[in-house]
């Protein structure tokens, strides 16, 4: 079985935020929630790097470990999904997540948190595939349609890749090799002046 993963190539990401907008618009994400975000380090300085991060769909995911109601589960292909009808909005997953992926809309009572929302890898949710409930609660189910997630599909520089871990890792490896820059080889930048 394929293991789905995201991979963001920091050498290629140009901080256009297209992935964020595509995800928000395509999945009709509630106001105030970003399932994906782009951060930039060293902005305006030489060596500025950007990276786009959403849920990483971790192996042995911390969010699943801490959820008191077992609302979060992992599919066989590695995609981590939340059942919004079981979620109680306690926020433990947000505290456990190293990547800040879980997001919470404001609920109905006293502005308490509603059910958690996060990146679904565009794989919908536990509702019936392609049903209205699935679309309303979780957004598109592009995986069931045989497509890659929206964010990766629209990425202009193809910095963001999504799919079978072996395939995208191989593509990335070829890129690093083709750059011929020693981007990941220790000491090359200093010894040969190559970046």
């Amino acid at each position: 079985m394929a293991r789905m993963k995201f991979l963001c190539d920091v050498e290629r990401c140009i901080d256009c935020n297209g992935c964020v907008v595509a995800c928000k618009e395509g999945n009709q994400v509630p106001v105030g929630i970003n399932r994906r975000r782009v951060i930039t380090i060293g902005e305006g300085k030489p060596g500025e790097k950007s990276i786009s991060v959403a849920c990483m769909h971790c192996s042995d995911a911390p969010c699943i470990a801490v959820c008191p109601v077992d609302a979060i589960y992992q599919r066989e292909d590695g995609i981590v999904l939340v059942n919004k009808k079981t979620c109680i909005g306690c926020g433990y997953c947000f505290m456990a997540c190293p990547f800040g992926a879980p997001q919470f809309p404001s609920g109905k009572v006293f502005g308490a948190r509603g059910a958690m929302d996060k990146c679904t890898f565009c794989a919908g949710g536990p509702e019936k595939t392609f049903s209205d409930a699935e679309k309303r609660l979780y957004g598109q189910n592009r995986i069931a349609e045989g497509k890659v997630p929206l964010c990766a599909a629209m990425c202009a520089t193809k910095a963001l890749m999504a799919g079978d871990a072996n395939v995208i890792a191989d593509a990335y490896r070829k890129r690093v090799f083709a750059r011929g820059s020693g981007a990941n080889a220790w000491g090359w930048d200093r010894a040969y002046g190559k970046k």
Binding site: V10, I41, G42, G47, N184, W186, W188, D189, G193, K195
Partner: peptide
């Protein structure tokens, strides 16, 4: 060396 390697970022 100006821009660091990926590993530094």
């Amino acid at each position: 060396a100006g821009p660091g390697p990926s590993t530094a970022s």
